[in-house]
Write a protein that binds this DNA or RNA. Structure first.
Lengths: 264, 264
DNA sequence: CAATAGATGTCGTTC
DNA sequence: GAACGACGTCTATTG
């Protein structure tokens, strides 16, 4: 870790040049204004903020509120340090699309840089994919006699979450939502039915499977003669969850009783 | 600014307790693991990361890559410091939905806290709203003789971006997209037409207005007998843009030639 | 609260 | 690179 408290413009500039050249993760806290021009454009007047520059080119400007950065540049960008008279500037650019983000510092409270060692990847459970998987393993969660046939079935215009057959041999198309299903889920389902319906003879059923559904979505669903099946939220608690890697091999049971997680 | 380099668990704990109590913005860099349980669930093994806690309750855990935090809790949450034996823990909770985020530190490289003064708000130009506004001012951007009638027209289930009348007296519903229009834009438009079409006698035209449209969206649009009108991207460059506040009063011309923005 | 839709969305995946 | 869809989306706005 390298760190300077309230550096001068000169020392701050040297510090940042070195840090950026060496692809370190940089934290800057200071009074700055921000200018952005690209897909959209913005200006932000002077104020004290936290700026992060990551070795992958990401640049984040955080105000004292909100989860979202007020300005940013995504991975793949390149940042450099310049001077604007007596002020230090951080300029981050990318092409395709052409975007320029400029942070002009009036004052630096702190600059710091780190070589972060981190080989771990997030293991997440409770996604829509998990929901589909749980239905594959227990098809009766949809209805008695339902037989899943194909997951992520590719069609012309999109992918069907789950395709299967019901107890009477009718084709069933299921659109899953991990949380409340909105009207866009119904539209998606309808689109898939349009396309499949033309290919297949006979009746094709369409089902939205989710823990809940919005009132508007339910209405459209009814109008179209489609169905809603409530499925439990994907378990994320002690002992109930399962973690998979991206290749969808099961990694391990999700350990819900991790030692000392501070709750209670 | 308060700052500790490589503090002990004890001093780190005291520091963070004080900082959180006083609603300061906190930066922590250290080796940690992360546990999340709520709408979904996740685990993240040990690694060195940057953690930010904001006075509004936001908590962010950033790895060395990506724009997105690997784990987070949104504004409105409350964070507290605890101890797990010899390890420092940050526990952030919220209710509705119930969510708990736990960061367990194996090692602290740096803790710092700041009282960030910032009264400025972002002034952004180039949004969909700007696009609608530009068409209101120059209706011929849609077509000769088009007369805008109502912006953000509320209907039962949603809002029409722009409602107007064409040179032959037909009603026109326009859905705008600030960049490439996708099939969901077409679906939105179709939904509005369904509802308006029932109320109004006579023909109703539906238009998607955007700088571009995806191939799939164009196909659906054609099938439905709807139209695409190319509108220029909202200007975000020198002298062309205009900035509005949330009340949509014009604040000032967007100053494209800000002094010394470091480019070139 | 629920519902709706935009976003400089970001991110992954497939073609 | 274009298209498509999920996201612990977040965020603002409206009833």
């Amino acid at each position: 870790m390298e760190l300077l408290r309230s550096p001068t413009v000169e020392s701050g500039e040297r510090f940042l040049e070195t840090s950026l050249r060496d692809d370190r993760t940089v934290l800057i806290v200071g009074r700055c204004s921000v200018d952005y021009r690209g897909r959209a454009g913005s200006v932000l007047g002077e104020g004290e903020r936290v700026v992060i520059v990551k070795p992958d080119g990401t640049l984040l400007v955080h105000q004292r509120e909100k989860r979202e950065p007020v300005n940013w540049n995504p991975p793949g960008c390149s940042a450099r340090v310049t001077r604007d008279g007596e002020r230090l500037q951080l300029v981050s650019t990318r092409s395709r699309p052409e975007e320029v983000l400029t942070v002009t510092f009036e004052d630096l409270m702190m600059v710091a840089s780190f070589d972060l060692e981190d080989d771990e990847e997030l293991q997440l459970v409770g996604t829509e994919e998990d929901l589909v998987r749980s239905v594959m393993e227990r098809p009766d969660l949809i209805e008695e006699g339902f037989v899943p046939k194909e997951k992520n079935k590719s069609i012309k215009t999109g992918e069907i979450d789950l395709y299967g057959v019901d107890s009477e041999g009718r084709s069933v198309i299921i659109e899953f939502k991990r949380d409340r299903a909105t009207s866009s889920a119904v539209w998606q389902l309808g689109r898939y039915l349009d396309e499949i319906g033309r290919k297949l003879d006979g009746e094709v059923r369409g089902i939205v499977a989710a823990p809940k559904i919005t009132s508007g979505a339910k209405k459209i669903l009814d109008d179209k003669g489609l169905e809603f099946v409530r499925v439990e939220e994907v378990p994320t608690r002690a002992g109930e969850g399962v973690v998979y890697d991206k290749g969808q091999r099961r990694i391990r049971e999700f350990d819900g009783d991790r030692k000392g997680d501070g709750r209670g």
